[in-house]
Amino acid sequence: MLKTVEEIKAAIEAAIPGAGVEFVPNPGPAAEHSLLLRPESAVAVAKFLRDDAELAFDYLSNVTGVDWPDKEIVEKVKAMRITTKTVDGVEQQVEETVEETRKRIEPGCLEAVYHLYSVAKKHGPLVIRMRTENRTDRVTLPSLTPIWRGAEFQEREVFDLYGIVFAGHPDLRRILMWEEFKDHPMRKDFVEPDDYEYEPTAHDHVLKRAQAHPAAVVASGSQRWRDEGIR
């Protein structure tokens, strides 16, 4: 019988001191909780998960990326402030509660999620995840392809679509997009090319946009080559 995620976490920490595994709860009905690994110790933990006789997670099913963009959080904070007030002609320092609107940017990250199963013991899944430091320049995570080769193409895909660089991957190239392509299209802030024809629809805002769109003249244009014939 498979241990709970907490027990697996304890087993990892007992085997690899200082692994720094974090428990990430899943609030949904599926309740597939996950473990957040530190990039420094991830390969050692993964090797332990694969080779431990009881856990035996020998089958890496799924690897994927998730983009968590920087979030701007607007919150109202009650702050104590000392102001000088003149009360009855005497200057006094008074403490006052003031409501302030503060904006802070919660830094985002890119996340790689791995789903592990055991073919030998027929249990699973165990979800492990790793997070990059930010979304721009510090996006390197250790590759788990040397542990499970099933990750080879999937990590390449995450590199292609999300831009996570997997250190130690034997062949990290773009897999789905062409080599010259510059962007990482699955990121939430990717701006898609706006080059398709809009259908006339019942939704006013779509229709308005369709009429303003350069492709709207296509209906008259595409007739042209038929009339003239292509010479």
Partner: peptide
């Protein structure tokens, strides 16, 4: 020659 409408390359808003 076959598709007489100019399509903007790259990305728009």
């Amino acid at each position: 020659g076959v598709w007489p409408v100019e399509i903007e390359t790259g990305t728009k808003g």
